[in-house]
Design a protein around this nucleic acid. Structure first.
Length: 413
DNA sequence: TCTGGGGTCCTAGGACCC
DNA sequence: TCTGGGGTCCTAGGACCC
């Protein structure tokens, strides 16, 4: 019998911060989004105290102080590095895995209850021992059921196998909002129709689901019934688009500063493009004033490039032109970004007789990429994409680069 | 006295996830 | 003073063609 396991790191970002700070064991921890905007991760202590994920930081600041919570800015370099180690350990058990996000992976396996529970426990023990990150493991017949099994495991002993005979009972006790693929919008609609639990949803007729919801939701329903409907993706497909954007720490009014910020985000996006060996055929530039202000202005523009490219100067030029087309004088902007797309098309590019520099540019792009690989991302870039104080992120509570920088290794006492 | 219908491609926007 | 960022997939509707 094929079984799917879901391994999920508990409170991942908070656990990463705790790995190098044993003094934080049992203490509530909050991790903030970019620009220290809102709370994106919490340790279990804080979840129990009722702090909501996604809450704006300013609105829960007093509460966090009262609980004496340790608060951190996001340190993605650290989280990604620990994630890579965790995934490597899970992979070493030999079953095929699908890394689904920075903190979870599906495992394709088989076996009876005893052997599954043993496997789960071994994975859990190895990961905590070798990285310090606690994980939970849930097994079931489909991905959607494995998600539910994992939720149960988190609240109990850390490993759980949801057997077919126990599925109905489990689904009766599962709220719609805790079903993978059902968000607030769909849940609200279903509640009005008297569908309250995962069990109710499973009972709905296929035709009705298809008519009022979507094919995606229908697949969810099939999965709840035990039919594997969500595909295995053992090889991560190439990204179809690459987005790079950040809010500013101060409002910006002049177009020149926006250009500089945009150029620097373009550099980040191009890097991601090169990492997967792609080129982009078109891009979208967008900018916004303060999102929650009355006089909000936000706009975007699509720009078709003359040819597929991963050469930064060829992207910055058209992007800046696009920026000028949507820029309005006299407003205070808080955000600008760039989205590179048309990536599929790049693979089938044809020799362009009018662009004799093409190969030269490709080699230049490749060289820049390699220098950055070896000496760091800041080592070489375009003149007009250097960071400036005015729009650099707010990260007042950043932890150290414990694992990726020799200078910041934790001391041993 | 009366303007089809089906296919395809593209795009914008919605919903969801982490 | 304070409200992430980066993805995926699907759908509806318009344009166009025959």
């Amino acid at each position: 019998m094929k079984i799917i396991g879901l391994i999920d790191c508990n409170s991942f970002y908070a656990s990463c911060e705790r790995v190098f700070r044993p003094d934080l064991i049992n203490r509530p921890i909050a991790v903030l989004s970019n620009n220290d905007g809102c709370v994106v991760a919490m340790s279990s202590e804080l979840k129990q105290l009722g702090v909501r994920r996604g809450a704006p930081y300013y609105s829960v600041r007093d509460q966090l102080d009262r609980y004496q919570a340790a608060v951190f800015s996001s340190n993605y370099t650290l989280y990604q590095d620990l994630s890579d180690r965790v995934m490597e350990i899970i992979r070493s058990f030999g079953d095929p895995i699908e890394v689904y996000s920075i903190d979870e992976a599906f495992l394709y396996t088989s076996g009876d209850e005893e052997s599954l529970l043993l496997l789960g426990k071994q994975i859990r023990d190895s990961v905590i021992q070798q990285t310090g990150i606690p994980v939970s493991v849930g097994f079931a017949r489909t991905k959607t059921l494995a998600k539910i099994a994992n939720r149960y495991a988190k609240r109990h002993s850390g490993v759980f196998y949801l057997q077919e005979s126990g599925e109905l009972q489990m689904l009766r006790n599962t709220n719609l909002l805790d079903v993978w693929g059902i968000g607030t919008r769909k849940a609200r609609f279903l509640f009005t129709k008297g569908v309250m639990t995962a069990f109710d949803l499973m009972q709905c007729e296929d035709r009705w689901i298809r008519k009022y919801l979507s094919l995606v939701t229908l697949k969810t329903v099939w999965e709840l019934r035990g039919d594997q409907a969500i595909e295995r993706e053992l090889f991560r497909p190439k990204r179809k688009g690459v987005l790079s954007s950040l809010g500013f720490s101060e409002e910006i009014t002049d177009v020149y500063s926006l250009e500089v910020a945009l150029a620097s985000y373009a550099a980040i996006a191009v890097r991601k493009l090169q990492e997967q060996g792609s080129e982009a055929m078109s891009l979208t530039v967008f900018l916004q004033t303060h999102r929650y202000k009355h006089s909000y202005y936000g706009n975007s523009i699509d720009v078709r490039l003359s040819r597929a490219t991963a050469y930064l100067p060829d992207i910055i030029g058209p992007a800046v032109q696009g920026l000028h087309a949507i820029f309005l004088e006299g407003l205070s902007y808080t955000k600008v970004g760039i989205y590179l797309h048309g990536i599929d098309e790049a693979d089938q590019f044809q020799m362009d007789l009018f662009d004799q520099n093409r190969e030269k540019k490709r080699r230049a792009a490749r060289a820049v990429y390699e220098i950055q690989q070896q000496y760091g991302r800041g080592s070489i870039t375009c003149r007009n994409s250097l960071p400036q104080e005015s729009w650099r992120m707010k990260r007042h509570m950043l932890s150290s680069k414990y694992t990726t920088s020799w200078k910041e290794l934790p001391p041993v006492s």
